[in-house]
Design a binder for these strands. Structure first.
Lengths: 246, 246
DNA sequence: GGGCCCGTTTGGTCCGACCTTTTTGTTTCT
DNA sequence: AGAAACAAAAAGGTCGGACCAAACGGGCCC
């Protein structure tokens, strides 16, 4: 295999700034909670214009490692934070909309991730987690619940178990993937033939999932969540088919 | 549970622009390959300054849904693309450096994702994939190979199988997670007690992985890659321990 | 036809002015 | 003395305009 040549791509200023800040992060110089100097001071120190600096900060903000606050006082200015979830969610949502990933890809990824989540959750879930799941379950049982509200609660149910697995990375990935198909799921639910029956069926599975996690049956929960996801995604694919045919 | 009140957080201009463009993407108005109007035209049409528009474009660029090219001709300007891998890699790398995720979290996520990758790869890998893996394996076998080069080839080996699984989403996630621990792995390799022996051991496992994938033994490949990752991550944890103690 | 030059288009950079929000300090009135 | 009102300062947010740099297209000259 021959060496692959790459075009040189002259680095843009904001990329240099970015690189410089990232190095600080990698070196441990910048930790969560630290504040950056004000833009008007930092820009000349780095030898770039304020606009270039701001573009770099915007990038860091969309990655979820920085927030900016107007005003004075200790909370003002640009601060390093750790908030990957929104960033990852937006990323996957957009790419899914653009067709970077097929529905089948998302299905398999959800199965893989949520199997792992539920497996671990069966060993790690706290009493608070279980109580919250119970609460969500009860609210989803309301027959008068609208489709959109159901979808919201269903998302929270799945994300809750991902969080309770104790693994923040898997949790982030799981909820981002779940979020990315959220609009699609909403549309599918809206066009369900018999919505009350669909909701009841999903809820029965949710209740059983909760029971398995509570009793510590990780393998059982993993198997059931796989069936749960495959079953529902199956109707999604059917729905998509019907739409494409029309 | 009472209703949770949120602060209103006045939206910033670039966020409005972003929202507007995202809606176009979700609606299917903007597809991969489409070009946006020039900044100088688009900004006044949207009623914002060019700077605000540019910040929104920068955000889209870091998400990997847009690239910008200077100059004239059909390739110039801002174009919609689908390139999630770099974006995801940078995101996870930074958050890992900031301590959003522990080493154990990454270990479990890698095991989950790569088990799935290798399982699927055993059914999907093409002859080209296998040939490339063979090539990488041969190059990793060179005893004179430096640690950094080995790490580079090892990364490509793992990412290759993720890609060959046929699932672009899992592949993206796998390579991003692998990339996020790359600097760490490099440091661990550099401080290995007996580097040639370590390399030989890893290579033997790589060769066996390739064999299992080639013969279509997905379950076997999944099990082996789990042992492979856990074994190596184990030395990482030991290494970290030793550093923390010092 | 090939090569050179020059203009046009488009993003990239910089600067300076001004707006808005948030806190802090000070003054004034009771 | 205390509370309310006002003013100043510090920070990010926005805007407009000027200019730089890269890439392409076309025309001109050999």
């Amino acid at each position: 295999m021959s060496v692959e040549w790459q075009p040189v791509r002259q680095a843009r200023t904001h990329e240099l700034v970015l690189q410089s800040i990232e190095e600080r992060v990698f070196a441990g110089d910048l930790k969560a909670g630290d504040r950056l100097p004000p833009e008007r001071e930092l820009a000349p120190v780095m030898g770039v214009s304020r606009s270039a600096l701001r573009e770099a900060l915007r990038v860091l903000e969309t990655i979820g490692v920085l927030v900016a606050q107007q005003g004075r006082g200790p909370d003002a200015g640009a601060r390093i934070v750790r908030n990957p979830d929104d960033a990852l969610g937006r990323l996957l949502r957009l790419h899914f909309a653009l067709g970077s990933y097929s529905l089948e890809d998302v299905l398999e990824a959800r199965v893989t991730l949520e199997r792992s989540s539920f497996q671990a959750s069966a060993g790690h879930a706290t009493a608070e987690d279980l109580a919250e799941a119970e609460d969500l379950l009860a609210r989803m049982g309301d027959p008068a619940l609208g489709v959109a509200d159901f979808n919201e609660l269903d998302t929270r149910f799945h994300v809750l178990f991902a969080r309770s697995s104790g693994n923040r990375l898997t949790s982030t990935l799981t909820s981002a993937v779940r979020e990315s198909v959220r609009p699609l799921i909403l549309r599918a639910l809206e066009s369900a033939d018999d919505w009350p029956a669909t909701a009841a069926g999903l809820n029965a599975e949710h209740a059983e999932l909760l029971r398995l996690v509570r009793t510590g049956d990780g393998a059982g929960a993993a198997d059931l969540v796989e069936r749960h996801i495959r079953g529902f995604h199956g109707t999604l694919v059917d729905e998509k088919q019907r739409r494409d045919d029309a």
